[in-house]
Design a binder for these strands. Structure first.
Lengths: 124, 124
DNA sequence: CGTCGTAGGTGCACGATACACATAGCCCAC
DNA sequence: GTGGGCTATGTGTATCGTGCACCTACGACG
């Protein structure tokens, strides 16, 4: 629902989807922001805003979901590497359950949508 | 999310989920705000804010996705009944496709989550 | 030198959401 | 007939997530 032309409808992922995605990637192994930025597109997020990603990581750091440390690099700027904490792992489980609930809701929507779609767009 | 206590993780439905839900309900038949408010919980939305719902309906009215008319009532206050337009029906189809894409993304997340969950929470 | 790729970050504005509150009509009980 | 409850539709406002633009810094390469 972008202004004006009734054209493209963006994919409208769940709110806060970035957080569980980052937690999941960090559950697979420690990493740093730039790398996560590249990996995250594999989860359906597309054109992730780097600023938002770094902000999200720092927020989770302050909340204790992740731990961070600077890692100097010989070739290029230093990286801040992130590691999942136990609390973050707990949060990951909870939000995975929450996302499963969202998926159930979407399935319910789909079933109901298909009923009305059959009538307005009959099989050919 | 809620600052401080890593407590409740709300279900975080897709952004703008209200719109496609209302369009779907209206595709099943004309209705008015109050009734939609009661029906919408069946789609997974829970504790929907009435104000937001009415605002959403009026916005869709202005955008031409729905048509509205006042219907006087013998028992109780008048209702504004909403009817889906052709444009709204088109929007419904598009957003249903978009939601399907979200569902695919969530499925991808789930598969990947289960891989890491198997390791940290082994089967018992 | 400039510029490209890596890496991390801020500022700001907009839109969706959440929460509180307002209004008005009808009906029933007291 | 007054007060409260249900139906029905809204407004006002704060908050928060998101998107876009922009900035800094380091190393390497030509």
């Amino acid at each position: 629902m972008n202004r004006g032309s009734g054209g493209e409808v963006p994919v409208d992922l769940p709110r806060n989807y970035l957080r569980p995605c980052l937690l999941l990637l960090l559950a697979e192994g420690t990493s740093h922001g730039y790398e996560l930025l590249e990996q995250i597109s594999a989860l359906g997020l597309d054109r992730v805003d780097p600023g938002g990603l770094y902000r999200c990581l720092r927020a989770m750091d302050q909340e204790g979901l992740v731990r961070s440390a600077w890692e100097p690099s010989t070739s290029g700027p230093a990286r801040r590497i992130y590691e999942l904490t136990d609390e973050g792992r707990g949060w990951l489980h909870v939000s995975a359950g929450s996302l499963a609930q969202v998926a159930r809701s979407l399935a319910k929507y789909r079933r109901r949508y298909q009923r009305v779609a059959e009538q307005s767009v009959p099989v050919r």
